[in-house]
């Protein structure tokens, strides 16, 4: 398949997954902000979320303070924020449009309808009235597009690059969700009693659909160590880092067709570490340090995939400032004569 097509499919899937995870993260923080607690603590949650998403800069350029209303607006409907839900859904749709002939009409129509309905819902004031309904809708639209992929597409390179985008983005996002708590403690001078720990970890679990999984796996009270263990190492659960990276490893094998590449090696190494890792060892070196290293390696892997498969285009790709957003090719407009 065309390298450019693979690139669009890869980013289409990444943006769809990112919209879903942003909605999940917003939902968790929104639920937390409803608990009886100090405003300071609620603000801390929002601040940590922005920081972990590397968006504090853009946010504070246009806003004062950390009001729930403002942060939700910024993360859900602000087009100047490239990772807002609306930006992600638009980017997913535009990428799908660029390659609508390479997938099938059902996938395109599901992403197009999501985009059209999203504009309508936001204009109707759903974020003001019932933000949780909107977050849940975003999550279910993502389920739908994944369902269309699995239920209707031929298993060819188009499918593999799409799935690759999904799991690279999910590994990245899940690691960030887990790291929010660390950011909160970092940003707080007083690290003494944290009475909302329980609720925080429940919210984290909820945001990755992990609460029920946790209960079934551990049949015990909630502790940060176990939450980290579940999100990082539990291979049988599709939102964990281990499961996401295992998928990435396998998908890279599909698209390289047995060729040995740097991407194959990086993925195999990371996957083996997660397979054989123990939560005790990981926590010994510090969870935050572990996650920072993990994110760097996932980004490196994504970069390798891009260089090896997606951008063998003659001109040098423009230097990327932020490794996790797509580089846009400049379209030349053509004035056609007779058509």
């Amino acid at each position: 398949m065309l390298s450019r097509t693979a690139d669009h499919l890869f980013w289409m899937a990444r943006y769809t997954e990112r919209a879903e995870n942003t909605a999940r993260m917003l939902d968790a923080n929104y639920q937390l902000s409803l608990l009886p607690q100090s405003d300071e603590y609620a603000e801390l949650g929002w601040r940590a979320m922005l920081s972990i998403s590397e968006l504090s800069g853009i946010y504070s350029a246009a806003h004062h303070g950390m009001k729930s209303r403002d942060v939700i607006d910024f993360m859900a409907r602000d087009l100047s924020n490239p990772s807002s839900i609306v930006s992600c859904l638009r980017a997913a749709r535009e990428n799908a449009r660029a390659v609508r002939s390479s997938t099938n009409s059902e996938l395109w129509e599901s992403l197009n309808t999501t985009w059209l309905d999203c504009q309508r819902m936001l204009a109707d004031g759903i974020l003001e009235r019932e933000p949780y309904t909107f977050f849940e809708w975003v999550k279910f639209r993502s389920h739908l597009s994944r369902g269309v992929q699995l239920g209707t597409l031929v298993k060819d390179d188009a499918f593999y690059f799409m799935r690759l985008g999904t799991f690279i983005e999910r590994a990245d996002n899940t690691a960030r969700i887990l790291d929010v708590k660390f950011e909160m403690m970092e940003q707080r001078a007083d690290t003494s009693a944290q009475p909302f720990d329980y609720h925080h970890w429940v919210a984290v679990l909820g945001s990755v659909s992990g609460f029920e999984v946790y209960r079934r796996v551990y049949r015990d009270v909630i502790t940060p160590e176990r939450v980290a263990g579940l999100l990082i190492l539990y291979r049988d659960w599709p939102r964990s880092l281990a499961a996401s990276i295992a998928e990435v490893e396998q998908l890279i094998g599909q698209v390289t067709k047995g060729r040995d590449t740097e991407a194959t090696r990086l993925a195999a190494q990371l996957s083996a570490e997660l397979k054989n890792g123990r939560i005790g060892d990981i926590l010994k070196g510090g969870l935050h340090a572990y996650l920072v290293d993990f994110l760097a390696r996932v980004n490196d892997l994504a970069g390798r995939v891009s260089r090896e498969f997606l951008l063998p285009i003659a001109q040098e790709p423009p230097a990327q400032t932020q490794s996790q957003t797509q580089t846009q090719s400049q379209g030349q407009t053509q004035s056609q004569g007779k058509e």
Binding site: E94, R97, S105, S329
Partner: peptide, 27 residues
């Protein structure tokens, strides 16, 4: 010419219906 051409839908549609690649000059 690309996805911002006014007839882009048609280009993609015909490529899809015929089962052939839709390419741009850069490809």
């Amino acid at each position: 010419p690309g996805m911002y051409n006014s007839a882009y839908f048609e280009h993609a549609f015909l490529a899809q219906q015929m089962g052939v690649e839709l390419v741009e000059g850069q490809d």
